[in-house]
Simulated assay, not measured.
Amino acid sequence: MDLGWLAQLGTTGALVLVQAAATDVWQLARAGFTRLLGRGDRKGEAVAERRLDALAAEVEQAPPAERDEVRRRLLSAWQTRLVDLIEEDPSAAEALQVLRDELLARLPAPQQQWVQNITASAPHATAQGVTFGNIINHSNLATDPGNRADGDGSLR
């Protein structure tokens, strides 16, 4: 299984889930993710419902100006949970894609936007970020003057 695709699907699914919290789309998201995470097992669905309810409560209890920050904080746990799910049960990937697409189409337009700020402040520092894609770096350490120590040709 392509791990890049798996991570991307887990990320986009988690993004849509946390964005749906505290919106008119939440009940649809909750029902869909309960089925997906529970995989037909009543106990699994009960656990999923508790986790989803906790997610929604945390977002709803935050002041409106802080909700995006709460969503960002909750995102990684849900991304991990969804990636683990489709690693354990690859057939869940298609269901996650369908649910993600349905919810994304129903979310209000402002809920589909994310801002990513990346800062590098140390000498010779590089900061990179990507959402829904790849970063490919090619570095020639032998010709990069920032990687030389005192001009003697040894790499730092």
Rank of each mutant, 00 (worst) to 15 (best):
V18S: 00
P63T: 01
D68W: 01
E87W: 10
P108I: 03
S76D: 12
L75A: 02
A120L: 14
R30N: 07
G153P: 10
E60I: 00
R71A: 01
S139H: 15
G10K: 09
P64W: 01
E87V: 10
L107D: 05
M1G: 15
A125P: 11
L103S: 08
P108D: 15
L28P: 00
A95S: 15
A21R: 03
P64A: 12
Q79R: 14
S76Q: 12
L28Y: 01
L82I: 01
N147K: 08
V130W: 03
T11A: 12
R72L: 10
G4V: 12
R73C: 00
H124F: 08
A7S: 14
F132W: 05
F33N: 06
S76W: 05
G4R: 13
H138K: 12
N117K: 14
N134Q: 13
A149F: 15
D2C: 02
R67E: 00
A62K: 02
T12Q: 15
A31S: 10
E60G: 00
A122T: 12
S121F: 14
E69Q: 13
R148T: 09
Q97G: 10
N147Q: 12
P145T: 08
L9S: 01
A142V: 11
L103A: 12
I135S: 06
T12Y: 08
G146V: 05
G44H: 06
A125C: 10
N147F: 12
L104A: 11
L103V: 09
T34K: 09
E58W: 01
E87H: 07
L55K: 07
L55S: 06
Q27P: 09
G32R: 08
G146I: 05
I135M: 13
A127H: 07
F132I: 06
E60N: 00
A46D: 14
A92D: 03
D152L: 05
A48S: 08
P90L: 15
E69Y: 09
G10M: 12
A22D: 15
V83W: 05
R81G: 00
G13K: 04
G4Q: 11
N140L: 10
G151Y: 13
I136L: 07
R106M: 14
V98S: 11
R42E: 14
F33Y: 14
G10C: 09
A95V: 05
W78A: 02
R30C: 07
D150S: 12
E69W: 03
W26D: 07
P64F: 00
E94D: 13
G44Y: 02
G4Y: 11
D53V: 06
L85W: 03
H124C: 10
R30F: 03
A14W: 02
D144F: 05
A65Y: 02
L82Q: 01
P63R: 05
A77M: 02
R72A: 13
R100I: 06
F33P: 06
